[in-house]
């Protein structure tokens, strides 16, 4: 009972505290780089699309708001034929970014994306793809991967030996 009264008194005292409210949009919020806002698709240091269409972001998405279709160019490089995020469903949890093995999908500190029509919240690849490496500069998945997709030849990647000469029996 006493604690109840004490609680009430302490809450009452908040009448005289400083307000925490930020008067958006007159005042702007200071955004941190790791803020989970608008989702983008980034490019690798060589200007190629980072997304390889592995579907992991779509699988990780708890609201299933990512749909894509992987395609392959003439070099065997995978890219998304289309990549669609339905932001009217997105909860900005960032699981897609966590799941992404190539740093392609990233969340950015931008939340000002309200629309009057819900349909306008459906972003296609053209809306998502930016000409930047985003938060993780310097990574090019195809230099690490084993397969050759026009970025490097077999054995020329980081941490790779030259291809085996199968005609040789030497150790």
């Amino acid at each position: 009972m006493i604690s109840h009264l004490r609680t009430m008194w302490l809450v009452f005292l908040h009448l005289f505290h400083k307000r925490e409210t930020i008067q958006y949009p007159e005042e702007k919020v200071a955004m941190r780089p790791r803020w989970r806002g608008r989702i983008v698709l980034t490019k690798d240091p060589d200007g190629g699309e980072r997304c390889v269409g592995c579907y992991l972001c779509a699988a990780a998405c708890p609201v299933d708001c990512i749909a894509l279709q992987a395609a392959e160019d003439e070099n065997g490089r995978r890219y998304p034929e289309f990549f669609r995020i339905n932001f009217s469903r997105c909860i900005f949890c960032g699981y897609c970014e966590e799941a992404c093995p190539t740093y392609a999908i990233q969340l950015t500190p931008d939340f000002e994306m309200a629309e009057y029509r819900r349909q306008d919240l459906v972003y296609e690849k053209e809306d998502l793809l930016i000409d930047s490496q985003g938060k993780y500069p310097g990574y090019n998945f195809y230099k690490m991967a084993g397969l050759s997709a026009g970025v490097k030849e077999k054995g020329k990647g980081e941490n790779e030996e030259a291809p085996v000469d199968i005609k040789s029996l030497l150790p």
């Binding site: 699988a59 998405c61 609201v63 708001c65 749909a67 819900r118």
Partner: peptide, 15 residues
Amino acid sequence: RYSGRTAMQANKAVS
């Protein structure tokens, strides 16, 4: 783990 339920057809109609 079927993915994309809310986005597969969102280009046609968002609902």
